[in-house]
């Protein structure tokens, strides 16, 4: 209970710091902290497998990718103002958050729909095989993305000045 309050506050604080910090590298590190704390909260909710995956992928792999990309692209702090005015941003934010609360709050205390808990492997391989096919397709596009991340220099069609 108290642990969950502390972890929730930690997640929110590190998320705010990830958005507010000017330097990109520190922002990526705060994102990793938020991801690790999210993994702990997922573990407390009784989902250890996803907690492990979130910790290794969300806090590990994604952070490495961010640091790599920031190294290539350069850590330029963007001080300029946002494209949309601040009151509009806050209004849209309040609208979205209010809609989320309005949709989620009445469904909080619902009774269990099915108490028959199938094993995760059975769900993954029998009922959700289409998801696995899509994940394989997504992995290939990710490989293409890594190639785009690694390839430096001008594209082939462009002439060297």
């Amino acid at each position: 209970m108290y642990w969950q309050i502390l972890i929730g506050l930690g997640i929110l604080a590190s998320a705010i710091l990830a958005i507010r910090t000017k330097r990109l590298l520190i922002s990526a590190i705060w994102l990793a902290v938020a991801s690790a704390l999210t993994a702990v909260m997922i573990y407390l909710l009784g989902a250890p497998q996803i907690a492990v995956i979130e910790l290794s992928v969300g806090a590990g792999l994604v952070t490495v990718l961010f640091v790599f990309a920031i190294n290539i692209a350069g850590d330029e702090p963007v001080e300029i103002k946002s494209l949309i005015p601040a009151p509009l941003a806050w209004g849209l934010l309040l609208l979205a958050v209010g809609l989320a609360i309005f949709l989620m709050l009445p469904r909080l205390g619902i009774l269990p729909v099915s108490t028959v808990d199938v094993a995760q492997g059975a769900i993954l391989w029998d009922a959700r095989y289409l998801d696995i096919l899509l994940q394989i397709a997504i992995f290939f596009s990710g490989v293409l993305g890594v190639l785009g991340l690694l390839s430096s220099g001008k594209p082939k069609g462009e002439k060297e000045e």
């Binding site: 946002s82 934010l93 989320a100």
Partner: peptide, 19 residues
């Protein structure tokens, strides 16, 4: 709700692509 709100706000106001 806080995480989703903070992420949404970050998408709305930031001009840096990595942000």
């Amino acid at each position: 709700v806080g995480l989703a709100g903070i992420g949404f706000y970050g998408i709305l106001v930031s001009r840096n692509m990595i942000k």
